[in-house]
Amino acid sequence: MSAYRFLVNGAPAEVDVPGMRRLLDVLREDLGLTGTKEGCGEGECGACSVLLDGQVVDSCLVPICQVEGRIVRTVEGLSLAARERGSLDTLQEAFLEHGAAQCGICTPGMLMAARAYLDAGGGPDEDPIREAIAGNLCRCTGYSKIVDAIAAVATPAD
């Protein structure tokens, strides 16, 4: 065991756990951030997606020793600024309005993949949006409303 330090949603975190513990387990069990979900534990479903230094990763495939000194962002940190105002951020709002979340279990991971896409300057075209979320399985929506929601946010305000 050794102590690993990193930033989670803007706040410093320190955990004293085995280095091979999955980032997913550190978030959910050691830090109590249960917004990140486990769907398969083998990098197939994307439910555990978080941002690691801005890149979307499956947190079930990341050992905590590789997170030392890095920046992690989870669904709980998606709307930190917005939540202080008691509301959702624009992406979450778009998901809500478009009906892009149904059972909600894929939603946190889906939001993180979408956030990485938008932060990288992704636009409203459908194909790149679909590619950006192809690592996130959803069994409820058929994806159409998710794509619509992301496109709505990517569209520059007129």
Partner: peptide, 9 residues
């Protein structure tokens, strides 16, 4: 290979 999550890692 995979999708964004796998390609990033």
């Amino acid at each position: 290979i995979g999708a964004a999550q796998i390609q990033n890692r």
